[in-house]
Structures are given as C-alpha cells and as structure tokens.
C-alpha cells in the first residue's frame, strides 16, 4: 500500500494536523512503509472469527443515576488557553 502526497494531505486534514509541505513526502514514505507492515495481516484468513474489542470480553458495569460532581469551573478553567465570562473561547464559528 503506497500513499501519495494528496492522501497524506487528506488524512492530515481529517485529523486536523498541520504538516509542513516540505515534510509531506517523508510522511508519505513513512506511512506507506507502516501500511506495508500492517498489510501482513492479510496473510491470514480470519473469516468467521468474531472481532475482539476488549481483551477480557467483559460487559459494561452501570453506574447509579446520582449527581456526584460539584462545580470546579475555576480550577478547570485556570488551565484553559482563553476563557471569558466562564466560556471557553475559540475563533468565531460560522454556521
């Protein structure tokens, strides 16, 4: 599997990662070699095998519906890059 520079740009966009244009070819090569490694999976026929998402095959535990959290806004917003009037700020979102 070989990725072209346009593929890298598309993936980087989907992942919201800025990649310098000068590095695109390098990423294309690295990612392609990783995909070659990954393609080894196709050596094995796994048809009919149930996928395993959690190693223990366990089931979800449920929490009682109780309010256990208190307001910690000041503490949480102390580490935020841009906060005003209790709101996190980002460049204007246009809908």
């Amino acid at each position: 599997m070989s990725l072209k520079p346009t593929d890298v740009r598309n993936i980087a966009h989907l992942a919201r990662l800025h990649i310098d244009e000068a590095d695109i070819d390098r990423y294309a090569a690295d990612l392609s070699s990783i995909l070659d490694l990954v393609d080894q999976m196709n050596q094995i026929d796994s048809s009919g095998v149930a996928p395993l998402s959690n190693p223990l095959d366990a089931t979800q535990r449920l929490r009682d519906d109780e309010v256990t959290e208190t307001d910690q806004r000041d503490k949480f917003q102390k580490i935020a890059p841009d906060v005003e009037q209790g709101l996190y700020r980002v460049p204007k979102v246009i809908e």
């Binding site: 993936i11 980087a12 989907l14 990662l17 990423y27 995909l35």
Partner: peptide
C-alpha cells in the same frame, strides 16, 4: 505521534 494518528485515522476511515 503524528504518524500514528494519521495511520489510525486512515485505518478507521
């Protein structure tokens, strides 16, 4: 990290 994020993004797309 970027490489892994990109491969993962690709694999799930």
């Amino acid at each position: 990290v970027k490489r892994r994020i990109m491969i993962g993004t690709y694999a799930l797309s």
